[in-house]
Design a protein around this nucleic acid. Sequence first.
DNA 1: AGCACGCCGACT
DNA 2: GTCGGCGTGCTC
Length: 805
Amino acid sequence: MSEQFVEVIVDVPSMQTNQAYTYAVPTELINQVFPGMRVIVPFGNRKILGFTTKIISKRPDVSFDLKNIEEVLDLVPVLNREMLELANWLAKWTFSFKISCLQVMLPAAMRASYNKSIRLISTDVSDEVKALFGQEEELPFDSKTLTPESFKILSKLNRDKKAEVIYQVHDRARSKKVTAITNLLTSAEILIQKDALRTNAVKSAKLLDFLNNLGDKTMILKEAMQKSGLSSAIFSQGEKKGWLKKIKVEKYRDPYRDTKIKKTEPKKLQPAQENAVTEINQAVVEQKNQVFLLQGVTGSGKTEVYLYTIACALKNQRTALMLVPEISLTPQMVRRVKSRFGSNVAVLHSGLSEGEKFDEWRRIERHEATVVVGARSAVFAPLEQIGVIIMDEEHETSYKQEDMPEYNARDVAIKRGQWHNCPVVLGSATPSLESRARAQKGVYEWLRLDQRINGQPLPQVNLVDMRQELKRAPVVDVSTPLLEAIKQRLKKKEQVVLMLNRRGYSSFIMCRECGFVLKCPNCDISLTLHMDSRSMKCHYCGHEEPIPQICPSCHSKKIRYYGTGTEKVQQELQQLLPDTKILRMDVDTTRRKGAHAKLLQRFGNKEAEILLGTQMIAKGLDFPDVTLVGVLNADTSLSLPNFRSAERTFQLLTQVSGRAGRADKLGEVMIQTFNPQHYAIQLAKSQNYEKFFGIEMNMRHKGGYPPYFFTTQIVTSGPNEADVAKKMFEINGQLKQILSKQAVILGPTPKPIMRINNQFYYQLVIKYKSEPYLDEFLENLLLTSQKEAQRKLQLKIDRDPIDFI
DNA sequence: AGCACGCCGACT
DNA sequence: GTCGGCGTGCTC
């Protein structure tokens, strides 16, 4: 009789449990457990989810009894050897918990949800307790749903051994629920209700007729809205009046999913494209791991190159992974890929529900989909035999995840390319300095597309010197030259896109008498004005309070709105152009799922002449009638004290400029700036990436910034400022001991927003070229600072931070 | 992360 | 005296 044991990474994200725990495999599960499966294991006095990483056939030499695995959740491993090794690497690389790295690779639906309930085991209890339980045998037991009093009583019962707590682990629900309606009225009642209506209650009457037709059937609300032509508000009214009930029903996968997309044929390639395709495809066929930087101006046909290489991978019985920023993952983009590769394509993006993501994941895992298109987390798609990995807009900062594990999808893509022996294509019109520098050094293969496909010229870019404008007129958001240009375009029935650069910017309230700024009581930042809810909100902790009418500091009435929001610009613009329809696109108007795509669609249908938005309009939109793009404030991202600010500004301006004048109409770009002489703005004007690269590299060299130096950021936080600062200076001292002379330490300094939710933040940045002991030191630092009974002190390490101010 | 264990102050 | 506050250490 053989025995089996298994190493498990448990679902407890902490440094102390960041290790494999060994469990015994019960007889009935022997030979059914393999590495990369999800299991439920007893841990302490509860049950939790874990991932098996290793099967051991010899009893480990330990002095304590091993516990048994409770349950195996998967029939086949959900993570293969590649993924398990990738997770290990990722944990080390990003200084993250192993469990977090394993979880991030799987759709959220495969995470566990935990439940506790409590059951009486003694009848010798007070009447109060009996009342609490009523007819129930078990009560849900958690401090959030129970009242504090009940929670106390039940806790005491547990302590007195009169009740036991039951721990449950659930695989998350996998089905999508949608709202449906059922009719609550009989035909007779409907008649009565109808008679009682006022004659002008047309909509209500229509609803009653509809309900009458529906009878006792259930219908999905969306469908009911379509069939009846009534809005959701009318149905909600009906619910309030007690005519109908809204219920949640399970929605099945849309069976029509791929039917509407027509198959398209590859387009003819330009010589430069042809060359790029040849180079990449050779690597695909030869299964050669090589990183390509595909640098191509907007409109040079990078996407077509991607599609050719994907086709090549498929032809060689291999799969393909294509990563795009979330924001450019538009329906048009998806359609373009699907129309070429049909149902082989799986799409992973944040607009999908948990269940839909799970469905797509399963399709990939079962090899039903061989091409994956998706945003950041799609880099972990369970593809096997990958033939090519593509990352479009490789410079995008959204490829870096902001919470644990703070991975950069670019690093992961390159890592996976090594495993699969396949080429990795990084594409961009404005590559990150890091990638461009590597291409220069020959680390990456450099491919260029310098011509636009239709040979059309790049749009004319004009600068508006706002300093001059300011001399002529009081501060306005839209200058006279820009307004004139807008009017001209509108006369020609063409469309206009206006971008408000809002990075690091918000609208706050300031007193014009004493300069008082309303700040969050918990955090160190000014509250942001929200016109929709008529309140002041903190973007960090969610604190909300009414808009002040009188200055709390000097009691003046001259406390008001300061700064520029899209809303304010829209109002201003609407006054200047009263007969023009303006669509506004910002965080507020796109919060709801799908709202983003809908707004773009409306603009595409020419329901509005002007589209006004923030950064998000810079990408992925391609409207033939847009001939003018205006940037209202190019400087806000430029003035941030951040070593990447010039790069960001240049990228942003170049990108929006690409939105003007596609197809047959010549485009024009107008950039309003207070710094018209700045190289980032000048070179964006001339669309000269190469020159920008040269100058910016020089700046980075002088400042000792990436790509000349690596950077790693350490952030500590805690409720007591002195403790946080002390810890940081301690780390600083230790670092000085182990670092070479070449390395530079910036800080420690308090973070610019020092207090968030009553936590103080201090940071330190290490700039270095090669430090053999640094990783080990940092790993140790994490381990010790957790064990040192300093749990109030949080420590975070971010390798290659996107920015630090 | 939870949870138990254990050491202190403030109540029936 | 006991209840319950939180600091500390452990979970195969």
